[in-house]
Nucleic acid binder design. Structure first.
Lengths: 344, 344
DNA sequence: CGAGGTCGTTGGAGCGTTCCAAGACTCTAA
DNA sequence: TTAGAGTCTTGGAACGCTCCAACGACCTCG
């Protein structure tokens, strides 16, 4: 045994199971067992094989494993064409978390570009046919998401970041508890002495927006504070947000919880126009803790989505499902974190 | 021929080359040729095979291809731990472009998480050993980037988003021409009648920052405008940016080109403190066109990085290198686009 | 009419792994 | 000493594809 060559680190030299086996003086399958079911080997043999693996720097060839086991150990994530629309600032952190937990479980995340919702289904089909992915992570779920039904109908494991706001609940999901976030913001502001706390939100009808509004309303109720006329709606653009904030300001509101940081900036603008500034007597808390928040003056307090945790949970649920397709559906709701800055 | 079953769309039914061959009444290899070297087939045969492929919905098994050809058709992208630092807002669009052009070339992007710079090399080694990636895309290059040398030394194809600001130039890269961007901004402002145009930048020493400063300086020179005392430096935080902007304002500057949108907001703040507002008589142009830009009031003009193009070029260069490892190095410099909003 | 060339097409082999059934070895009991 | 049970280890086969060398059909030319 222990033939001629010394351990090679050259990337070009492919170390195979067979080579490790020869080096350790055992059979091919024994090495495979050492990796996949170490319990089968006598401790002494296991140790010898382990050493050979380390010395040769052996790593199983993924393609060969995939071919044999019919599992690519790849998780697909369709990255949408953000187009001219606002870039998704949260993607970065979410993907990092996803990739990290995937790595830990021996999986890896494979990206594919999708142009439209229809296109996305075609791409799923393609990846599945090619055995290029074992499961999928979705984000940006829509009402009655066609993707989820498509995947579910075919028995393909997947997990969604985002609740199905309506329609059949058809798979595992992880989401951020927007209501818990706005409720926490209300309680914080109330703790500071505010009683007239307004809500600056999007027009009703969006799942996320309504959820965030609900949290504000619930907490106000709980604290015995009135919500009458304390809610203003606006689409996301700065001008609309400002005028909505102005309406709120006119009703004598002393603090505001906003459904997004962009909306919170409307409050900044309305105050500024009135010759005032955000602060203890005119507080505001935004949502999403976007990159803007620390940059404006005064720095904006906001509710940060726990994206690391979201990504980690998504991967955990997905891998559990990959290992047991029959298990009952599981849902995870994570509370956002209140990041306090100068706007209170 | 044409046995029993009709075209199946079930994802669970794996259609193989052999099945297509049987269906079309030809040999196994002929189908392979139809896909990989269609020129070898008689048109009539090709058409017959094509039809069989379509009818059966055949897609080559990636794992089998990878195993045989020793090419995974996967491109690795290490996604850094953004940690507590600011999320990288550009990642989204860049990754989308990357994934899209990869798809078009029959490749796919595989993500892996990296904790530290040292860790990144380990992960490269791992992916290569596993045959889990054929090449890599790097971003966020540093001075004398160890990753690039590591990959180059081992003959691994890669492309970097970002120039090597110093040190040996060791591979292909694509970058955004910051100097061209700030120069264009200067020319635009000069065209509006401004003569005292300042530059609000980061402390000297960063490749990106110095590049952007250089563009401003060059254009000023070219236009015969003085740069003396017109440059202020500041780290990124809002307070520092504001005081740097104040210094600039005090020297009588009427317009400012900033190295980032965050710095541009310093100008907003300084003006506001002086009872003024950004606009025609106190213009500012930021850099990166971050999500903040359209949200502030007045909306911030900025230089948008052409991330779609960057991603596309990265993939193009990488694939060219994968196909011909001996080709000379290629570099691509892309000009940012001036996005005009209300801040002029 | 058969030799020589060209073009299309074919089956065998093998990529590196895991599954499977069978083999070798060790230990105890008859 | 040998049969039997149990534990560890082994080589053959197969996953689906592409490379290779060879084969058959067809055409042209002597």
């Amino acid at each position: 045994m222990h033939a001629d060559s010394s351990p090679q680190q050259k990337p070009g030299s492919p170390v195979t199971l067979e080579m490790v086996a020869a080096w350790a003086g055992v059979g091919r399958q024994t090495v495979s067992n050492a990796i996949n079911s170490p319990g089968l080997l006598r401790p002494e043999t296991l140790e010898r094989v382990q050493r050979a693996i380390d010395e040769l720097g052996y790593r199983p060839n993924r393609a060969a494993q995939a071919l044999k086991t019919r599992a690519s150990k790849l998780i697909g994530y369709g990255i949408r064409d953000s187009g001219t629309g606002a870039p998704n600032p949260v993607l970065d952190q979410f993907l990092h978390a996803l990739a990290q937990s995937a790595d830990q479980a021996g999986y890896r995340v494979v990206l594919f570009a999708v142009a439209s919702a229809r296109d996305e289904l075609v791409r799923y089909q393609q990846l599945l046919d090619e055995h290029g992915a074992d499961g999928f992570v979705l984000s940006g779920t829509e009402r009655n998401d066609p993707r989820q039904h498509w995947l579910h109908d075919r028995g393909v494991p997947f997990v969604a970041f985002g609740r199905p706001w309506s329609g059949r609940d058809v798979g595992d999901w992880v989401d951020v508890d927007g209501a818990a976030g706005t409720a926490a913001a209300v309680r914080h502001l109330a703790g500071l002495g505010h009683e007239r706390i307004g809500f600056l939100g999007w027009p009703k009808g969006s799942g996320v927006g309504d959820d965030r509004a609900r949290g504000w309303q619930g907490a106000m109720l709980e604290l015995g504070l009135s919500t009458r006329g304390r809610r203003a709606e606006s689409p996301g653009d700065p001008a609309a947000a400002e005028s909505a904030a102005e309406r709120l300001l006119a009703t004598g509101v002393t603090a505001v919880v906003a459904a997004s940081d962009a909306l919170a900036l409307g409050w900044y603008q309305a105050l500024r126009r009135a010759g005032r500034a955000p602060g203890p007597d005119a507080a505001v808390i935004g949502f999403d803790d976007s990159p803007i928040a620390p940059l404006v003056l005064p720095a904006l307090s906001s509710l940060a989505q726990p994206l690391d945790a979201v990504g980690g949970e998504c991967m955990r649920l997905l891998i559990q499902r990959l290992n047991d397709r029959g298990r009952p559906r599981e849902h995870v709701l994570l509370a956002p974190r209140l990041v306090l800055r100068e706007s209170q």
